[in-house]
Computed example of a mutant assay.
Amino acid sequence: MASQLREGPPPSMQFVSSGHASHAYQIRPLRASDAAAVRQICCDTGCLGQPVAPLCSDEELFASLVVEPYLEYAQDWGFVAEQDHQIVGYLLGAPPGFDASVFRVAAQATLKMLARAATGNYRDHPQTLQFLHWLLFRSYGERPLRPVHAAHMHFNVRSPERGHFLGLHLWQRFETLLRDRGISHYYGELFSWPGHRPERPYRRYGLQVYDRVSTSLFDSVCDLDIENICVYKRIV
């Protein structure tokens, strides 16, 4: 069951990006009714910022793997960005020690994928079978080290809205929530490759690289040398 929102959640925050009224956004706490939009953004950005379909044709279970633990067990740690009443980005947070919830949901989704693979659902999409193989045999070994006793965050923004500092504003709301709850640091994971090194500009916002490992997750769809990087930040 999803955790309940605290009484008196932080008020919504509005801002105008790049000085244009057409880029007016609102950051507000995540609601249960946002789940479908969050899942869709996850699938629209799940393959190196692009739609996940080339990597995994089963969007339902891909979203279950990536965002369902937060939606089900940490609803009151998340925020969304809206423009014209449409969700265009999200930040899903979680308290320290959240791995058990992630494992529980991921195991259920992986078993469903195995069952669907056994009945031939992915016969015409070998990349999905490769993705499932990666989940079973390589995913654990290709995760970077993470700081202990730290909160966690995962965020995504739709492609048309990137470059308007939505990620920064979502981080700031999340950091305010962490301070209110007495948590001193948090981490997230991101993908980095030649020509796309997000960890570099993130340093100006105080996020540092904690660990980095090579990943084979995207080998079926590209030939880039991709790293999975854990970034972290101390806020108090």
Rank of each mutant, 00 (worst) to 15 (best):
P95Y: 12
H149E: 14
M13A: 14
V67I: 03
L48V: 03
L129H: 04
H149Y: 12
A151T: 03
P51S: 09
I41Q: 14
R123Q: 10
G19C: 00
T119D: 11
L5W: 11
R138S: 15
L30V: 03
S18G: 13
G141Q: 06
T128M: 06
A94I: 01
Y25M: 04
L91E: 08
L129G: 09
D76Y: 06
H85K: 11
R138Y: 05
Y90M: 01
Y73N: 07
V102E: 15
T110A: 10
L91A: 12
L65N: 05
G120Y: 00
A106H: 02
A151G: 12
E68C: 04
F103V: 05
D84K: 05
Y90D: 08
L92H: 08
Q14W: 06
G141W: 11
D84C: 11
C56D: 13
Q26Y: 11
G97F: 05
A115H: 00
G120T: 04
A53P: 01
L114C: 10
E72K: 11
C56A: 12
C56H: 04
P11F: 02
D99Q: 13
S139I: 00
P126L: 05
Y70R: 01
G93C: 06
A63L: 01
A106D: 07
T45N: 08
D84L: 07
P95L: 04
L91T: 03
A74T: 03
Q108R: 06
L5S: 15
E7D: 14
F79Q: 09
I87T: 15
L71S: 09
L111V: 05
I87A: 03
Q86L: 09
